[in-house]
Design a protein around this nucleic acid. Structure first.
Length: 423
RNA sequence: CGGGGUAUAGUGUAAUGGUAGCACGAGUCCUUUGGGAGGAUUUAGUCUCGGUUCAAAUCCGAGUACCCCGACCA
């Protein structure tokens, strides 16, 4: 991606009006800012600004997955019916969110709604011995679910972009060690994305192979889930497993828990041998004995994470992107029609882009100061740098954080230093 | 999948069954330039199909889309 662009090159525009068919704050602000475009209910295109955010989030997740031994790959979107019949999940009776279609040859195919089958089938080809394990493949991928009710803007769609990692371990002990590692990695991800302080590891239903799964729940009124949070320990329990037995198990006291709305930004699951058995995914251990591979699945919806950041970190004027995932670090505004200002702003833009600063440059002529300020607030870059007759008279550039009321005048050198010294 | 609601210009909104209007946007011109400026002028619309009626954006039916509540959510 280009690190610096002129706003006049950007085809998207901001809007003052809220789309009538969007109620959620995330969709409202993201559409008004020109980050996303709604195609239909639960389906959004990512415009240049929105894509930059998504890529930033993707990179953070990639770094954290790679750091714990993840290996990135890409599974196909079109899925093979026979493979899904092995796990019993091809049938519409079992899974009602499939998007399926006919092949010209007469067969059927479906669009991925999850990846367990694909990974189990692929790994079957390569895993034979204890020497081949453990492995942690993952991918970023478009996922399709024929939801009967999409809602909440980009928080719950029919098509969405996720990261899914699958762990293939030799035994429970090895699995559990990795499970703890990924739990930490997930906390790193949400912290780096700016919502760590609002995100809690939450005990949730574990399905058939373990007592619990763990969800990463971010507190927001826009959330679909209800959790019970112990604010002292930071431990939370999803309403779906909120029973006296579970509370006793987790040593939580009912009267110390607070009920909160939250959105599930990540979920990690122990799968045991649920998929290795139907896919005959096993290995020979040191003594030549065959054993099933122990699996786990670990997902994060990137669009949902982006939507959650908007929901939790915006104010009345617009979005407040954390520096780590902002489309650009700094929004440079040129105010007024003076040729000297325009030239100075061009120089500063050149300076910033050559220094590698991610810069969005509002060089649009004939746009009033008020409108440029309003746009800068809505788009939410962490820093705003203003060049105007006033700033030049006062000796340079007015630099302001998105979160600050007032800026301060700095020289070009100080500007560069302030921006590169950030983080 | 159950329930409720909505559908008018690119966007947001008006219009007792009787001339579809306003604002924003976009185009042209003039003025303006530190918190979504002003004037002039132009542009563009009743979701689809059927019905009732002299006459339908408006009433009726069907379809479709979208929104909300609930269910569902590996």
């Amino acid at each position: 991606m280009k690190n610096a662009i002129r706003q006049s090159e950007l085809f998207t525009k901001t809007r003052k009006e809220i789309p009538a068919d969007e109620v959620s704050k995330n969709a409202e602000l993201l559409i008004r800012g020109g980050f996303i475009h709604k195609e239909m209910a639960g389906v959004y295109s990512f415009l240049p600004l929105g894509l930059r955010v998504l890529k930033k989030i993707e990179n953070i997740i990639r770094e954290e997955m790679d750091a714990i031994g993840g290996t990135e790959m890409k599974t196909a979107v079109l899925q093979n019916k026979e493979i899904w019949e092995k796990s019993g999940r091809w049938s519409d009776e079992v899974v009602d969110t499939w998007f399926k279609t006919k092949l010209k040859s007469g067969g059927e195919t479906g669009l991925s709604f999850t990846n367990e089958e694909a990974y189990s089938n692929i790994l079957k080809q390569y895993v034979n011995s204890y020497k081949d394990l453990p492995v942690y493949p993952y991918d970023f991928k478009e996922i399709f679910r024929n939801e009967t009710r999409s809602k909440s803007g980009i928080m719950r769609g029919r098509e969405f972009y996720w990261k899914a990692l699958y762990s293939f371990s030799r035994n429970e002990k090895e699995h559990n060690e990795f499970y703890e590692k990924i739990k930490t990695a997930y906390q790193n991800i949400f912290r780096r994305a700016g919502i760590g302080h609002l995100t809690y590891v939450t005990f949730a239903s574990g399905g058939s192979f373990s007592k619990f799964s763990h969800e990463f729940q971010t507190l927001t009124s826009a959330g679909e889930d209800t959790i019970y949070l112990d604010e002292n320990s930071g431990v939370a329990v999803n309403k779906e497993v909120y029973t006296d037995e579970v509370l006793a198990d987790l040593k939580l006291e009912k009267d110390k828990l607070v009920e909160k709305r939250a959105v599930e930004v990540g979920n990690i699951f122990s799968l045991g041998a649920k998929f290795s058995v139907p896919f005959d995914l096993k290995y020979k251990d040191e003594s030549g004995e065959e054993k099933p591979v122990i699996m786990g699945s670990y997902g994060i919806g990137l669009g949902r994470l982006m939507g959650t950041v908007v929901e939790t970190l915006s104010d009345d004027s617009g979005i407040i992107w954390p520096e780590s995932i902002a489309p650009f670090s700094v929004h440079l505004l040129s105010l007024g029609e003076s040729g000297a200002v325009a030239k100075e702003a061009d120089d500063v833009f050149k300076l910033l882009s050559e220094a590698g600063m991610e810069t969005l440059y509002d060089d649009r002529p004939g746009i009033s100061a008020g409108e440029k300020f309003a746009d800068a607030d809505l788009l939410g870059m962490p820093y705003r740098a203003v060049i105007s007759e006033r700033s030049m008279k006062e000796g340079g550039v007015e630099l302001k954080k998105r979160t600050e009321e007032k800026g301060k005048i700095v020289s070009k050198e100080e500007l560069l230093k302030a921006l590169s010294g950030k983080d």
